[in-house]
Design a protein around this nucleic acid. Structure first.
Lengths: 246, 246
DNA sequence: ACGCGTAGGGAACTGAGTTCCCTACTCTAA
DNA sequence: TTAGAGTAGGGAACTCAGTTCCCTACGCGT
């Protein structure tokens, strides 16, 4: 009847004790006693006590690396690292209660904050490794790879953390999309500085309005132009590329 | 003759032992024995063993905060955080041999890498705090503050680390300037971020959005872009357009 | 001389992480 | 069916970082 793999039993025991005693107040002996196993077994499954708090990041990291290695060469590298960041978001968004509980604990325990930082750095390095390969040959390739991956991670964490601070209320996905859009627009190869004949992607809408335009009218026209709204990119295909509002 | 303050004696003793025994191989007892003081005294001056490896960051952090708090409001905020990053560079560049020795040790000891990350995060937070205050009122102020400070730190570290890897050869200052220039050009007035207004002659606002953008975001950003230096309606975020239309 | 605050010393304890060695189960090959 | 080997788990004993409690010594002003 040792159905539950020991690893899961230890995680469950740990998180059953944390709310009462806190992280520091829960010793490894407490955890193994509750799980009904020997102390030695804990360190067989978790190299340190901190690892039991973030049980799935190791797996998530290898998933991210595989995802990036499987990328085709014709994919936009920046969009790809943004998607990779969204994968990590899923890890948190799938278990809001767990994520919020852990976030609160992490904020209070310096050791856990340090651990979290080291995990974040490994994600960031995975992104940077991918970008370095994709940028290879272009000027400042490693610098750009490092800075862009740092931007993506910062944007992701900004959205994730404000969602966690709000106890998991609100739409994380939308918040992360917005944050990543900012990053993408800052770094993307829109080398064309001022207007001119910029090759615009098909799903981009340009509005022009005078500053004196009443807000209600702008909103109405924007709505009209974006009618096939929503998050489905493949749906909104037709309509004019440039809609003008006097 | 015990002129040397105990703190300095401990640092000196520690770094005298590290080359031979390594960080993990040097116990706190070894250090205090060499310094000729009691074990208890070590923890009076350094909260953890790791702190003795980075003895001056605490002081440097308060210097950076003071530097940023003393900034005038007419200074360019991004240039200011770049200068703040350059202050930290001085900490390393002033003692190349020491910095290189410590860098090599830090690479090999996971605990020291984690410590370094937590220090870096505190610098980054100092930058972000300053930028949040400077950006207050403009759209996405906290997001931009977080992402820009992450970019600055990443650029600084990129240049610093390649200099350290090269055993302190070459011109760090030039390398950091180049790296920071990249960041500044990405975030400063010219690259027009999607969802924000681009500079146009006269009184006209150009608004660019992807068709997949959620409606609530379009409305909010249009509002921010069109509101002429007053305050936006419900969100209470005054949107300053002056930067973008100059 | 007195009291008093501060810098340092040191024993003893807790708890994480390691080392060494033990038991028990299971799967395979002779 | 049994021998052997590989693997999952148990547990004592150790090291070392960090803490707690309490001690001594020195300076310093009144």
């Amino acid at each position: 009847m040792t159905k539950v793999p020991m690893r899961d039993a230890l995680i469950e025991a740990a998180f059953a004790l944390f709310p009462d005693r806190g992280y520091d107040g829960t010793t490894v002996d407490d955890i193994v006693a509750r799980a009904g196993v020997g102390r030695r077994s804990f360190f067989r499954y978790f190299p340190t006590k901190e690892d039991v708090v973030f049980p799935d990041h190791e797996h998530s990291l290898t998933e991210m690396r595989e995802f990036l290695e499987a990328a085709r060469d014709d994919e936009d590298p920046i969009a790809k690292v943004c998607d990779a960041a969204r994968m990590v978001l899923g890890l948190y968004a799938d278990k809001p209660a767990f994520s919020v509980q852990r976030y609160r604990m992490t904020r209070q325990v310096p050791g856990l904050r340090a651990y979290e930082l080291s995990v974040v750095r490994r994600y960031q390095q995975a992104l940077a490794t991918y970008l370095r390969a994709r940028f290879a040959g272009s000027p400042q390739s490693t610098l750009r790879a490092d800075v862009i991956s740092a931007s993506v991670v910062a944007a992701h964490n900004h959205a994730l953390r404000s969602w966690l601070r709000a106890d998991g209320d609100g739409d994380v996905w939308a918040a992360v999309d917005e944050a990543l859009d900012l990053v993408r627009s800052a770094w993307h190869p829109d080398g064309s500085p001022a207007g001119a004949a910029a090759p615009e992607p098909d799903d981009v809408v340009v509005f022009v309005a005078r500053r004196s335009t009443p807000m209600w009218r702008v909103v109405r026209d924007v709505e009209a132009a974006l009618t096939p709204a929503g998050r489905a990119e493949e749906s909104g295909q037709p309509a004019d590329l440039a809609d003008r509002t006097a």
